[in-house]
Measured scan of single mutants.
Amino acid sequence: KAKLLVLLYAFVATDADTICIGYHANNSTDTVDTILEKNVAVTHSVNLLEDSHNGKLCKLKGIAPLQLGKCNITGWLLGNPECDSLLPARSWSYIVETPNSENGACYPGDLIDYEELREQLSSVSSLERFEIFPKESSWPNHTFNGVTVSCSHRGKSSFYRNLLWLTKKGDSYPKLTNSYVNNKGKEVLVLWGVHHPSSSDEQQSLYSNGNAYVSVASSNYNRRFTPEIAARPKVRDQHGRMNYYWTLLEPGDTIIFEATGNLIAPWYAFALSRGFESGIITSNASMHECNTKCQTPQGAINSNLPFQNIHPVTIGECPKYVRSTKLRMVTGLRNIPSIQYRGLFGAIAGFIEGGWTGMIDGWYGYHHQNEQGSGYAADQKSTQNAINGITNKVNSVIEKMNTQFTAVGKEFNNLEKRMENLNKKVDDGFLDIWTYNAELLVLLENERTLDFHDLNVKNLYEKVKSQLKNNAKEIGNGCFEFYHKCDNECMESVRNGTYDYPKYSEESKLNR
């Protein structure tokens, strides 16, 4: 008799109507990190870190770059004969040098303040090359056809396309004075040089004057150069050297050249137009028929994500570079809930034993079982409120962090190594801060989002509990077992918050 009662009780308990509160689960393989956990499985997430590029040089917003090819900045601007293909260059979106560009200054020497000139050019998007001192009329008392084997072109001695090597005419090199007034309405880049012979005999042979000088002056520039005559090792078949100089001439300003020898005179100059998204990159990537809004030396990035880990040097509207390998923000729920887990921000989770793959029309909802059958029903209101809140948060985070910009490298010469090392340390410090901030932001927001979901499920549970009161009992896994019969209409009233407690209280009292 006792065995019969136990079996009867078990049958009745199993047959009781139930309603459970749960949440969506799926077959997603997404994982995120939080402050407290690593690799948390979630139903949905968004990636904030771009880690792919196309490996190509592309047009930037429809404008092609200027590819210097086998030449570098120095060779292009001075007019190395091997860089003749660059003479027609007028406009570009950015400038590309190759790491091993070999054609710079063909006659050995240095372009002074080269690093600063590169910085200036990094904001130039177009130029006009014009004859600042016409070759045939500007130097009537001097020979202007100086050439050298060091600047050979097609097997013949030649010289820079933008400079003139002035030497004596006959047996004399009379003092020369020439000036140019900038009437271009924009900055003009003027380049010139000073020749330093290897011996007094060479000085006399070329310029006749043993104590020659070169003077260059404008409103913002004033220097006097004296040739340094000295024996030097042979470089590119030359014992002599040429140093090259430049200045930016403001609109309306005048530049005056005065010399008694050794002047490498300007022939062509450049009127410059600035462009905020221009820059110089060093890259071996090849040019393709493609378009982008962000270019790196590795390749083009076409992404609206706020961060990238491809390269710190970028041109155009680019994500911020960070050292992170993963920045994924959760938008959905835990896919593998932890039992009795309390989140960092106070939300209680884990009283549900598992997510439901059968509930596909919402994030949170119900599963019921009664004599009429069983089924899932999503709670659309709480789901939609959660979707709206999380979507707004993700968009806000992306908008705040998605300050796209150009980031170019800084140039230092060989004598500025300590400054370069200090600059690298400062840049590394800023990069570490950006990386830390980005990672911390994602970790915190992921923790908040998961706790937010847990709290929403808990609130749904409490909503049902407050309606049923003692007409049902909690069975410990997020479910309630009714003390009365609850048909589909009754189940719907529980879900929509209109459950009639008094209607079922007498039946429940008897069954309790």
Rank of each mutant, 00 (worst) to 15 (best):
K3A: 14
V6L: 15
V6E: 08
L8K: 03
A13C: 14
T14S: 11
D15G: 02
A16D: 13
D17V: 13
I21G: 01
T31I: 01
D33K: 03
D33Q: 05
T34A: 08
L36V: 00
N39K: 14
T43L: 11
H44T: 02
N47F: 08
L49E: 05
D51E: 10
D51A: 14
D51W: 08
H53K: 07
N54Y: 01
L57A: 02
C58V: 09
C58L: 07
L60D: 02
A64H: 14
A64M: 14
G75M: 10
W76S: 07
L78M: 08
L78S: 02
E82G: 14
D84H: 07
D84I: 02
L86E: 03
L87M: 15
A89I: 14
R90K: 07
I95M: 08
V96L: 09
T98L: 11
A105L: 15
C106P: 02
G109Y: 09
G109T: 06
L111R: 00
I112E: 04
L117F: 11
L117S: 01
E119D: 09
Q120I: 03
Q120A: 07
S123W: 01
S123M: 13
S125Q: 11
L127K: 07
L127P: 00
R129Q: 06
R129W: 06
R129S: 02
E131V: 13
E131C: 09
F133E: 05
P134H: 03
P134M: 01
E136T: 12
E136A: 15
S138L: 04
P140G: 12
N145E: 12
T148S: 15
S150C: 09
S152P: 14
S152L: 13
G155F: 07
G155P: 01
S157D: 01
S158F: 03
Y160I: 06
Y160L: 03
R161A: 06
N162C: 08
L163M: 15
K168C: 10
Y173W: 15
Y173V: 01
L176V: 15
L176A: 15
S179V: 14
Y180D: 08
K186C: 10
E187H: 08
S198L: 03
S198R: 05
E202M: 10
E202N: 03
Q203V: 04
Q203K: 03
Q204N: 10
Q204R: 01
L206G: 01
L206D: 03
G210T: 11
N211L: 11
V216P: 01
N220I: 00
F225M: 14
A231D: 06
R232T: 01
P233D: 00
V235A: 14
R236A: 05
R236D: 05
Q238N: 11
M242Y: 05
M242R: 03
W246T: 03
T247Y: 13
E250C: 02
D253T: 02
T254W: 07
I255A: 01
I256Y: 10
T260L: 10
N262H: 03
A265C: 12
A265G: 05
A269H: 02
L272I: 14
F276P: 13
I280S: 04
I281F: 14
T282W: 01
